[in-house]
């Protein structure tokens, strides 16, 4: 196949960017989208041009490192997969493909198609855990967890932290991502002791990072490669309200830390 690519190029966070057009020639339909970009990059290098920079690692849909806004959709045209799982057979010969980075104030561009998603890490650091140290925990089978609960917690836990939900949302809201973690922990017995403080800390950090608010359009769910459902958001909203109204407690404060 032969394709025309319109790609966002931006030297670094401080420079302005622009769309640049490239040709991708002799592309096999069996190639993945990233392998197609590899081919283009090889030819750019040989022409002494700078290769197109994009994030990637596992190339099998699990690490959450790849991104890309392809023809106006995060992770491209197919449902429930990441960009690295997208194959060129999903495009047709002669097609023009537009490739942009995630667009969100909380995800500044690092270079070309790669953005800084460290805000996601900071939200997790604010409370996305059960406070147990290594050692001294009970036998794993002392805790009985109904299969349906374990399965549902697992569904929430499969979020790969890619940021497509934010990119898909017109408000750049991070609610789907945050609610996935909050729900996982809120459903499991291990998460109960910190249930109310966790949701408050994580939401506070989310707001601080400058993500937009949720207006329930559901674009995030539609584009999420792991099919994280909107139910997570309602669960989180319930918990947040509950925490605020009835169970206000001091949110985690470990600043200065080191005990």
């Amino acid at each position: 196949m032969n394709l025309t690519l319109k790609v966002w190029r931006q030297k670094d966070a401080n420079s302005s960017g622009k769309m640049v057009t490239y040709k991708a020639e002799n592309i096999s339909p069996d190639m993945s989208f990233l392998e197609m970009l590899d081919v283009v990059n090889e030819s750019l290098i040989l022409k002494n041009d700078e290769p197109i920079h994009f994030d990637h690692d596992c190339r099998e849909g699990i690490c959450g490192m790849c991104s890309l806004y392809i023809n106006g959709r995060p992770h491209g045209p197919k449902r429930a997969i990441t960009t690295c799982q997208l194959h060129m057979r999903s495009f047709h010969d002669g097609e023009t493909i537009t490739i942009e980075p995630w667009r969100a104030a909380a995800f500044p561009v690092i270079k070309d198609l790669a953005v800084d998603r460290s805000a996601f890490d900071r939200i997790q650091q604010a409370g996305g855990y059960v406070s147990v140290n290594t050692g001294g925990v009970p036998d794993a089978n002392e805790l009985l967890i109904p299969k349906v609960i374990a399965d549902e917690a697992f569904n929430s836990a499969t979020c790969i932290g890619c940021g497509a939900c934010v990119a898909a949302c017109k408000n750049a809201s991070a609610m789907l991502f945050v609610s996935a973690k909050v729900s996982q922990m809120a459903m499991l017995p291990q998460g109960q002791p910190e249930r109310w403080s966790r949701v408050q800390s994580m939401v506070a950090q989310m707001d601080e990072e400058g993500f937009g608010s949720c207006t329930n359009t559901g674009a995030c769910e539609a584009e999420c490669p792991k099919e994280i459902s909107l139910t997570n958001i309602s669960r989180m909203n319930n918990d947040y309200l509950s925490a605020k109204l009835f169970r206000e407690e001091k949110v985690h404060d470990h600043s200065g830390g080191g005990e």
Binding site: Y129, V130, V137, D139, N141, L143, L144, A150, Q190
Partner: peptide, 22 residues
């Protein structure tokens, strides 16, 4: 054996049987 205990305590959602055991 300690690893499994530790992971469960952290909230790792391992597969379970209907009775709730791992």
């Amino acid at each position: 054996v300690n690893i499994i205990d530790q992971c469960v305590a952290q909230g790792v959602p391992f597969a379970r049987e209907y009775g709730g055991l791992l």
